[in-house]
């Protein structure tokens, strides 16, 4: 025999793991995870982040992304990923995270002086 509760204003109802629970209308939508959407504009280009949407599962997220972000042939391929699964660097672009590449000027071709009379370089 399950426990009984009157919480929710529907009269006394049984509770417990075996009783299906109807999610409250106002909270169901909030439970849909947030997906970030990436679209490949055409063959030869990278997927680019275009925005986000909520969907109940991965497949629905792809369908919703098609309707929302490619109504005018803006893409040939869509990636969706749950926002919670993305790991990001610290927000600050002056962060020490990016400092190591700042002083390595020798990684750029302009670091090397080549006489003007050397062709094709």
């Amino acid at each position: 025999m399950s426990d009984v509760t009157a919480e929710g204003g529907h009269g006394a109802v049984p509770t417990g793991p075996e009783v299906p629970v109807e999610p409250k209308a106002s909270t169901a939508r909030r439970d849909w995870p947030l997906y970030e959407v990436f679209v490949r504009g055409k063959r030869g280009l990278n997927h680019v982040h275009v925005g986000s949407l909520h969907a109940p599962d991965d497949e629905m997220a792809v369908h919703a992304a098609r309707d929302l972000y490619t109504r005018r042939n803006e893409g040939v391929s869509i990636w969706v990923v749950q926002a919670a699964d993305i790991t990001a660097s610290s927000p600050d672009e002056k962060d020490p995270m990016f400092a190591p590449s700042g002083d390595k000027v020798y990684r750029h071709p302009t670091f090397y002086e080549i006489p003007d009379n050397v062709p094709h370089m």
Partner: peptide, 16 residues
């Protein structure tokens, strides 16, 4: 239309 979002949530839960 709340029942549609609830149904989709329930379906996603079963196929997770």
């Amino acid at each position: 239309n709340a029942w549609v979002t609830e149904a989709a949530t329930a379906y996603a839960g079963k196929h997770a």
